[in-house]
Design a protein around this nucleic acid. Structure first.
Lengths: 250, 250
DNA sequence: GATCACGCTTTCATCCAGCGGAAGCTGCGT
DNA sequence: ACGCAGCTTCCGCTGGATGAAAGCGTGATC
């Protein structure tokens, strides 16, 4: 590397990206020193590169002196087609369901061995939930997660079944019971949870399929309890999921 | 710059950013050659840098061979506090309004001399609108835009009044009339449009204020016509805007 | 099936842009 | 006034970045 004392295997590009990678959900605002420490770069180097990022708009400096992710990266992120494309066609359907039920509605995909929430519609009348857009949760403890897990390749299923974390007393933590549950999901075409992720919250979820039948995402709803209208919720979700799948075919 | 024949004023970091900048709303998927051409970089250089971006997850290569913005940038973008923070606290309020009206609800901020839409809630029963999350529209032709313009600094107002583009036959294109309209917005505390952005769509919008009274965003709703309940819409928007403002104070 | 066209990938000699230790600066708490 | 922590600037050294050129793969055209 250029310079008088640098480490091998690091390119300028990788350093720029390392600096961007210092931001995460728990570190939305960082000082220069923190960014340098977290990216393991000398402070002057970090200073120079961050200045370029600021110039471009990738990061912004707040009045306090801390750096945060900038508007330009927000713009760029919206262009990610896997996320935004799906979100865009699904959004009206989610809102339709929300408008009819006033319950929290989720759109999620599988990201490795976790659920990644792409969209959430939730009002003040809805049950409070932990999920946020962009957040990840375990596959086995949520409605959308169970759906995505049921249709996931066997190696992913095995990896997940191997270590089932317990979130609430009702979380399924025995591999046998979860395996059985997944078979039920495949047979019935929908998944349910009962306070397995957070107490007081139950959920129903269905798969979203594209033309060739493959499952690309899941659509779920969170309610205080199933009352007696679980069938109605499943039906509403199925109609929406079909609509989304058809819109994606284009 | 290192190398045997390069241009001044270009750093490696700026080239990486230039490559990311080749993506925009009209170019979500690009081939390597297109990225090189649009960023004005030699093809081998683009190739090397894009490979690093792919390795990090900033861009993804599709089966077709085209490059698209990757999931990691989508994640990063969600961390932008100015956008996501506001969105997060406002989202339940938007959904409340949507649930009550089933009309399109908008959350927007001013970005230079344009409206930047941060969030939109819209179902199939809503009036079709052109705005999308992340899209920008002229300030003078939309409800939220008029609000943001009315509370914008004088130099921005002058710049906008200078060149008023006409979008529909009903778009206000005379500086005098717009100036009068803005005075009315400040006096009444809300803005309206009547088919000024798209035919068949009317809108109402109110400012969102934080504790010190400054306007940080606008909240708007799009309806087929005002019918006779404009006052009710304004009242609902005001309640939500106050709620959002109070939540932001923390 | 040979040729052409186009776009992607790899190579490699050159050399200057990036490097980071050191020093200076700024603001703040004591 | 002093110390401290974090930010910013300086500057001589050097090895990583550069891009022309050549190689490759694929699909269209003759």
């Amino acid at each position: 590397m250029a310079g008088n004392a640098s480490r091998p295997g690091e390119t300028v590009a990788s350093r720029v990206l390392a600096l961007l990678g210092t931001f995460d959900a728990d570190h939305r605002a960082l000082t220069l020193s923190e960014m340098a420490r977290r990216s393991d770069l000398p402070l002057p180097t970090a200073h120079r590169l961050v200045a370029e990022l600021v110039g471009w708009g990738a990061v912004t400096r707040q009045p306090s002196g801390e750096y945060v992710v900038g508007r330009r990266l927000w713009d760029l992120g919206l262009l990610a087609p896997a996320q935004s494309g799906l979100r865009q066609v699904a959004s009206p359907f989610l809102n339709d369901i929300y408008g009819a039920t006033l319950a929290t509605v989720h759109l999620a995909v599988r990201d490795g061995d976790q659920v990644l929430y792409l969209d959430r519609v939730s009002g003040h009348a809805s049950v409070p939930v932990v999920s946020q857009i962009g957040s990840r949760l375990p596959l086995h403890a949520t409605g959308v997660g169970k759906v995505l897990l049921a249709y996931a390749p066997p190696d992913v299923q095995l990896a997940v079944l191997d270590r089932l974390t317990r979130v609430t007393p009702y979380t399924i933590s025995q591999p046998g019971r979860l395996r059985e549950e997944l078979r039920r999901v495949l047979r019935e075409g929908y998944a349910t949870t009962t306070e397995e992720m957070s107490l007081g919250a139950c959920s129903v979820a269905v798969p979203i399929r594209v033309a060739d039948g493959s499952v690309v995402a899941a659509l779920g709803i969170v309610v205080p309890s199933f009352k007696r209208d679980r069938a109605r919720l499943v039906a509403a979700l199925r109609v929406a999921a079909q609509g989304i799948g058809r819109s994606l075919a284009t």
